[in-house]
Every structure is written in C-alpha cells, then in structure tokens.
Write a protein that binds this DNA or RNA. Structure first.
Lengths: 95, 95
DNA sequence: CGCATCCATCGACAGTCGTCAATCTCCGGG
DNA sequence: CCCGGAGATTGACGACTGTCGATGGATGCG
C-alpha cells in the first residue's frame, strides 16, 4: 500500500473511529425515512448541540453523510456506498 | 448500535485510522513468509525504531497482529480474521 | 565473561481532538 | 419588520497521540 493510499484510507477511518460518530451514523440510518435532523440526535447521544453539529460535519466531510437543508432544518442521510468502500478497503478479499 | 458496541468498534478502528499503521500492516502481510521483524520495517516507513515499536504494540493490542519473539528478534504476523471482522462491522450487508 | 544487537519502555514535547458555553446566521410566522 | 428557534461557528480548555532521544533488558557471539 502506498503512502498516498494509506493517507486517504486513514482519513476515512479516522472519521469512523469515534464512538459518538458511529452512533450518529446508526441513528441516522435507523431514523424514520432514513434521515434525521440535529434536534433528533442530541438527546439520544447525550451531548450538546454544537458537539453533535461538529461530529456531523466531520462525517459529511468524509462523505459518509449528506446534508440537506430544508427551511430551518438540516436533514442528514447515510451514504451506504461510502461505508461499503471503507469495508472493501480493509478486506479486499471479499467482493 | 449500542454505546458498548460503538466503543468496541471505535477502539478497533482507532488502531487502523493511522497511515503509518496501515502501511505497517501492509508491509507485514507482504513480507517474505508473512512475517517481519522491527528491523525490516523501520527503513520502509522512515521512522525511528521506538516509534515503529509503538505502532506495532497498538496493532497487537487491537488484535490485528501477533507478536512472536524468537531469540533476539520479534516476528510480527497479520491476523486476517481481525481485519475481516472490522470490515464486516462496517458493512454488515456483505456475507 | 564482556560486548554488540534487537527491541521495549520512559520522559518529553508539539500537535490534534472532543467537548462546552457563547455567539452568529438564517429562515418562517405573527 | 421583528422575533423565536434551528443549527453552524468560534474560542477555550483538558485529554490524548505521534514522534524522538535516551535508557533498560534480554539474547547470542567471541
């Protein structure tokens, strides 16, 4: 594996290597309609709104979530292909 | 996903979310006989011996490498099932 | 036994990260 | 047009992390 490959994969995994962010991904995916806004997420994870926004931003920047602002609310949605990409990068044996 | 699950998976991913450690895993796996000692790894990654030992320890603690001390040398070997486990945890859809 | 070699550990230091309170921005309703 | 609420941004602070030089064990060789 080249250093460039390692850098890119590590950046993606770093976004995933945090318990709160894993829970946020799980919560968004499980939420009604497959999307959730910040106000749906602060209470389940038990953290302040700025902290949740911070984690969501990191997940969006990593391509793991999309952000769709409709009116006052921002709806987040999972990008399953991005997760599958990370999984394949870790274990290329599996199709 | 429960907080306990998130904690455990995050701990595993944290060991993987570092470019040097990804390269070390790749180097060990690609090395002759599927195993490598520290002196085989310091030069390719361009870091000091203590730093390489530090990263290897983290990978062993995460269950991604095994350490086998034979005489003066310590031989490290990949644990493919552990990588596969991480990949499946990220994308449970795959078999 | 004495010494060189391989590796782990320690101490220190700079940089990054997770968190919160405070503030700012933007939108919809009266 | 103003106000209230959703969410993003900022600043600050403690905790953790990657790195190195120096040191400490253990093992094999002469």
């Amino acid at each position: 594996m080249s250093t460039a490959e390692a850098d890119r994969l590590a950046a993606l995994l770093k976004a995933l290597a945090e318990p709160t962010r894993l829970r946020l991904l799980s919560l968004v995916a499980a939420h009604e309609g497959g999307e959730a806004c910040v106000c749906d997420l602060t209470e389940p994870v038990g953290l302040s709104q700025p902290t949740v926004s911070h984690h969501l931003r990191i997940l969006v920047d990593a391509g793991l979530l999309t952000r769709d602002k409709r009116g006052v609310w921002a709806y987040y949605r999972l990008v399953p292909e991005r997760l599958a990409h990370a999984a394949r990068a870790l274990d290329p044996q599996r199709p």
